[in-house]
Structures are given as C-alpha cells and as structure tokens.
Amino acid sequence: MSKYAFFVGCTIPYRVPFIETSLRKTLPIFDVELVDLPFACCPDPGGVQAFDSVAWHTLGARNLCLAEEEGLDILTACSGCFESLKIINTHLKNDPDLKSKVNEHLKDVDREFKGTIKINHFAEFLYTEIGIDKIAQKVTNPLSGIKIASHNGCHFLKPTDIMQVDNPELPQKLDHLLEALGAETVPYLNKLACCGAGTRTTDMDAALKIAHEKIVGAELANADALVTVCPTCYVSYDIGQRLMTKHFEKTTLPVFFYAELLGLAIGLDFSAGFKMHTIKVQEVLDKLTA
C-alpha cells in the first residue's frame, strides 16, 4: 500500500461529491492509501493567482508544507489543484528569490517550504505509476459498445513546460486509459478546446458558449458520452448543458469522470452517484449491460 496525501480540493467534495466516492473506492484497489490533511483551497489558479501572484504562491506553499511535514507526495483529482500545486511547487523549487519571499511569509505561521514532495494527478498517476496493463487486468466488466469522446482539459496538460503530462496538441494517455477499460474512443472536433470555466466569474454566458462547442463536436462524432479528468470541466459540461438551453437547443450528452468509468469496469456499484448527474446516464449504462 503506497500512501498519498489526498488533495480533494473544493469542487469535488462540495459540488460533485460522487466523484470523490469514485476516487475513494477505486484507488485502494490499486494499493493506494489516501490520507486526508487539513488542506485549504489549492488556491484557485484563476481567481487567486489573478488577484495576487505572491499570495497565490504563499497559500499554495502552505498546502505543500502540510504534505511535506507528513512526508507524503500529493495526489489530486482536480486539474485546477494539480495546476496550482505543481506550478507553485516548481516555481518555488527553481526560483530562490520567490522561495525566500514566500518562506518569509510562511514564518508567520511557523512553516517553511522545503521542496521535498511531488504532485500527482490521479489520471497521470494511473497511467505512469499503475500502468495500462495492470488496469486492464482488473477489468471485469469491459465498457464495450460505447463510443467515448475524451476531454483532457487545459490544466491537466498546460502550461506544458511545467505540467509535462502529455503532448498538448495530441494528448493520448487518457484515450489509452479509456481503451484499457474496453471502451472505444472517437476523434472529434474541438477535442483540445477549453471548457470555459475560467471565464465563468466574468461572464457566464460566454463560458457556456465556449463549453457548448465541445458538446457539438462530440455529438457530431456520435459519441455516447464525454469523459473528463477534472471536476471543473465536469461541471462545465454536465450542469453546463442544462444552463446552455438558454442559448442553444437542448442537448443530453452524458458526462462522466474517468474514475467513475474505471469503477464500473472493475465491477463497483456507483448507482447512487450516477443519480446525481444532471444529464441522465442511464442510456449509456443500459448500452453497457445490453
């Protein structure tokens, strides 16, 4: 059993808690123990960073300190948290001026950033640390018969020089992870497009229009579902589709978080969580059992 500090974030536990269920149920099956620590907001790479870059680094460094003090690497399933924590961790490790500035602030709360841990995103972690083969071995209910449009999202991949997860112009790891579950992935238009969440606080309508592009692309490719690895993207597309009806014709493309499908494929029961999706997923589940 390898232990990780589980950085659950804000969106997962209080907006889409069923995603948390899928993570807490699936990861132990791959010998991963999740440890909860009193983390605060990562903090938000959009809002807080925009407000004050040094404060963003400092608040983020405090989270890193908590994990450093426990001697644990961080595992997160939110791409926003992943981006914040990984960028801050990298910046502080490489920029001694910034590090001393931040540590000066952290002294006030008796903490010090040392730079001893690594930040993992669960999807990247599954791909590199667990491996496609091991995942495929655990699959008991292969997801055959459905076509999936995979959505990597922005912060899982970019800024590329820091994230170093996959090729941002031709990401393939998520497709491989889905294929390991027996699903078919389809190429589709706007695969690389952003979910628009970053614009939500400024202009909800513009954000919805951005998110809508993705739904159009996936539907054109006859996808049965859209799959994300970021709770924020999930919200943009699942809850977003209902809000989009203000501007566009109603669409009902089911959206999943990767860990949910992983759980399904290895035989877990997530029916309580599936009921909490805004866009009904029953049709896809029926297709799978048919």
Binding site: Y14, T21, R24, L59, D108
Partner: peptide
C-alpha cells in the same frame, strides 16, 4: 452538498486552520 455527502457515506474532510489562512492573507496584503 452536505446531504449528498451523507447519502454517499463520504467521510468528513478535516477543516483548514483558519487563523493560518487569515494570517497569510493579511501578510501578503
């Protein structure tokens, strides 16, 4: 949200130390 968490039998998440957060938000301006 809390009701949903109950229904899903999710554990309580340890809350952050707010004095620390507020101190840091103060010193960073």
């Amino acid at each position: 949200a809390l009701r949903k968490r109950d229904k899903l039998e999710l554990p309580e998440i340890p809350p952050p130390d707010m004095t620390e957060i507020q101190k840091l938000m103060e010193v960073t301006g």
